[in-house]
Design a protein around this nucleic acid. Structure first.
Lengths: 341, 341
DNA sequence: TATTAGCACTCTATTAAAGTGAGTGCTAAC
DNA sequence: GTTAGCACTCACTTTAATAGAGTGCTAATA
């Protein structure tokens, strides 16, 4: 069901105008502002058609039209002109990301989140790599003092997990080394998901002699890896107050309450493998986000898609700006991560 | 300027009632609800006195009275009955904290923050120990692979910092050990604040032979220690929507925007050594918190005050409940930290 | 047949006016 | 010193009136 040239132009004008003004768009506005050599009456007829086809809605009889979810979808798929950042903006973004390069990966991701929320003026979130799906690259046991050992796990997704372990008695250096080597032998290149009780039992069996020490170390290490799967960084939550759809205190509260729960954020932003995905209103799976839009991109560490970076805001979102910015920032982030990790 | 018995009773009744209802309290309400065997006219006279003395305010001529900051202060200092948690609540809190004991310290603190916001129904924040003021307990350099070394610093405040360092070339195990020992010798027991360029230069001098490697390690390690001083965990920010003073969208926005900046939170919650401190309205130093109250307690690791745990909300805060809960939770947290670290 | 001018109609948002009620301060009596 | 009584104040609510933006429909026009 392809729309005619003129209908497409009118739909685009309405979506653009509504995104800009947040007010229902009337036929006269279209006729005057987007010079088409066509009268408002004709536009009215076209608008009635577009409404019948489901692309537009009318808040009440004597108001202008606003885009429906279907209208936004058509706009994003067929009509949009993606705004890439201007040369100045691009330079600024590159500068900030370049500066972040000196930091650890957590910090890079955190700064990227902030940057994204600042340039888009919406709320930005980033999901760090999943520990479960990460493979163990190296495990180190380090003696901190007589009865404490620090266990450090480094994964192929640049996650570093550490946990301080109390020992029941002093441990000799060579015994620690032996345990350390054993853990590396058995666990290296396994994903954390693959490390199950079976694997653990095997280690306990093979190192039978050191049971007392192992029983102090293994469960703590195991719990530490399994307990938290990924982090979520959130920035610019209060940006929503910029948009009149959130002048209603209840809407604002619901939105912010949503973002307070980590599990919800993971649900909203977690990846399904696509490089860039736009979810408009009711397209979102999460019940509480049905009047929001979410735009997200995946990022990679070492040629492996590991996390998501995204933006959430009202369905009346400036799609062309956000998509442009998100693409640009995700690309740059990937480049930095490729070079550094 | 001591208040008479009856004035004190009336002031307490007004504060209690206003905290409960959020409505200006009239003389009739006091007479009826807080049976005093005294007429509303008499109470009106007393209220006029209390207003003149600065303990009460009147939003407008035909409204009841509300407490001024001075009124709240008098209430907190002289009139309050602190509500300790009920046996059931106490048991519940202990259970949750006990469960957290199995976790790393970060996690304990995070859970405590959440718990505090849940039991008080206000916004809770916790400041983790300051790195600057922490003393280095141990530094370990661990070879992750040929050209990467992981540096781990453990402090006396149970902070563990790690940073992955890229090396210009492969490093021999004994050289790494030598550098490691040297770093420990020179830095152990120094606070991070005390580690300045002078100390760094001394190390570089004494290990002159390894300049290439040292120049890769030292600056990164130094930056990592100096870059971030402490973390702030925040929970229950949207709890403020429960309180009618934040039905005004601008107030809500200002409050939430405040909490979004880490520096502001540090400014608001950072400690001045007192075990428990209540800051009411204009008593707060931070300009943007002059219509809030902040209640905070310090917590200790190894007999040293290291961090703050606190609650922020409207000046019409349920002081007796919050103080009771905060004391109880801070005491329990201290006990857990004393036993575990 | 497609377009347009014109007009009646709809519905929200704004403003003004009137009414309600909680609470006060003051006065005079107890 | 306390209290009853009353006039007064002021925010809040309700109602009514008005304005204005925008539509849909009809009839004329190109």
């Amino acid at each position: 069901m392809e729309l005619g040239e003129r209908k497409r132009y009118i739909l685009k004008a309405i979506v653009d105008d509504y995104i800009e003004t947040a007010e229902p768009v009337g036929s006269r506005t279209i006729a005057k502002k987007y010079e088409m050599g066509i009268s408002s009456a004709t536009i009215r007829n076209e608008m009635a058609d577009l409404e019948e086809l489901g692309y537009l809605e009318q808040p009440h009889t004597s108001a202008g039209r606003i885009p429906s979810d279907k209208g936004y979808r058509y706009y994003v798929d067929k009509l949009i002109n993606i705004k890439s950042p201007s040369p100045e903006e691009a330079a600024e973004i590159k500068k900030i990301l370049q500066f972040a390069t000196m930091c650890e990966i957590d910090n890079i991701i955190r700064r990227t989140t902030k940057l994204l929320s600042e340039v888009t003026k919406y709320t930005a979130a980033v999901l760090t790599p999943s520990v479960k799906k990460s493979a163990v690259k190296s495990i180190q046991l380090v003696q901190v003092n007589d009865n404490e050992v620090l266990a450090i796990v480094v994964t192929d997704t640049a996650i570093i997990r550490h946990v301080l372990i109390k020992l029941p008695r002093k441990i000799e250096q060579d015994m620690l080394l032996k345990i350390n080597n054993m853990l590396n032998d058995k666990l290296k290149n396994l994903t954390v998901e693959q490390i199950d009780l079976c694997v653990i039992n095997q280690i306990l069996m093979e190192l039978g002699g050191y049971n007392e020490i192992l029983n102090a170390i293994i469960p703590v290490l195991y719990d530490s890896l399994k307990s938290v799967d990924c982090e979520v960084y959130l920035e610019g939550a209060t940006n929503i107050f910029k948009y009149p759809e959130y002048n209603d205190i209840n809407k604002a509260r619901n939105f912010l309450a949503l973002l307070e729960r980590k599990e919800t954020l993971i649900d909203i932003f977690s990846d399904d493998g696509e490089t860039l995905k736009v979810s408009i209103g009711k397209e979102n799976n999460n019940e509480n986000v049905k009047d929001c839009s979410v735009i997200r991109a995946s990022y990679m560490i070492g040629n492996k898609v590991v996390g998501t970076i995204g933006v959430i805001g009202p369905t009346r979102m400036d799609y062309s700006k956000v998509i442009g910015m998100l693409k640009f920032i995700a690309d740059n982030l990937n480049e930095i991560l490729r070079n550094s990790f």
